[in-house]
């Protein structure tokens, strides 16, 4: 029983996959966008209850490692690492953009080389390029849409957000926990450690020289 979840986008999602029967037993998406910290744990609990499973039935965890907004991303990763530690399970990290790529290829939405782009805020996108089979060729990187404008199909919300740079939008729009689970079970993606793909350094500047407190000095 593989538990899969992703918190790298505003949509918190979780699923349970039965590797013996090759079946997704349950897939849930949080009711509200964001609030990863509040919604993920109850969502996992509901997945287990809905599938009629006990936490001890789990045999592995798959987690999206981003790139994505840091705060939400960390919720998923610390949850995966802690649960894996408590239950003594292997954890597989997957680049969140790869999950979108696999779904796009397997669902027949793209049949040629393409890109996946998600919202990186600050007028930038997280971006990676894929071959026709959905294997990642370059990226992920964080970049301004205009600098990588292309007529190639672009999967993910980046295309709908920046149609001038990415005129050929294709579904899906959000990473799905069910596809994350299938991608891991079918070894369709590169399996990574559960480490965050931040791609950006923390916003912090070294302490500036001190400003005098005495007026006019």
């Amino acid at each position: 029983m593989l538990l899969a979840f992703d918190t790298a986008t505003p949509e918190v999602c979780a699923a349970v996959y039965d590797a013996d029967t090759d079946e997704v037993l349950v897939e849930l998406v949080a009711e509200r966008p964001m609030k990863h910290g509040e919604q993920l744990a109850p969502l996992i609990e509901r997945c287990l209850t809905t599938a009629g499973l006990d936490r001890r039935d789990l045999t592995a965890i798959a987690v999206g490692v981003g790139p994505g907004p840091f705060t939400g991303l960390r919720v998923g990763l610390v949850t995966a690492r802690t649960l894996a530690h408590v239950l003594d399970l292997p954890t597989y990290g997957v680049c969140t953009l790869d999950v979108l790529a696999v779904e796009a290829v397997e669902s027949g939405l793209v049949a040629e080389p393409f890109l996946v782009a998600t919202d990186a805020r600050r007028k930038e996108v997280y971006l990676a390029s894929y071959d026709a089979a959905g294997v990642r060729r370059e990226g992920p990187v964080v970049t301004k849409p205009a600098e990588v404008a292309t007529a190639l199909p672009v999967v993910g919300p980046g295309a709908t957000l920046y149609p001038e740079a990415f005129p050929t939008a294709r579904g899906p729009q959000r990473p799905s926990a069910a596809w994350l689970a299938r991608a891991v079970a079918g070894e369709r993606v590169e399996l990574l450690d559960p480490d965050p793909l931040y791609l950006r350094r923390p916003d912090a500047v070294a302490a500036a020289p001190r400003v005098p407190a005495t007026p006019g000095s």
Partner: peptide, 18 residues
């Protein structure tokens, strides 16, 4: 906020897992 969230999420995972 972001720092608290790491501890809270980990605590929830412990509660769930145990």
């Amino acid at each position: 906020a972001g720092a608290l969230l790491v501890g809270v999420a980990s605590a929830k995972a412990l509660a769930l897992g145990l």
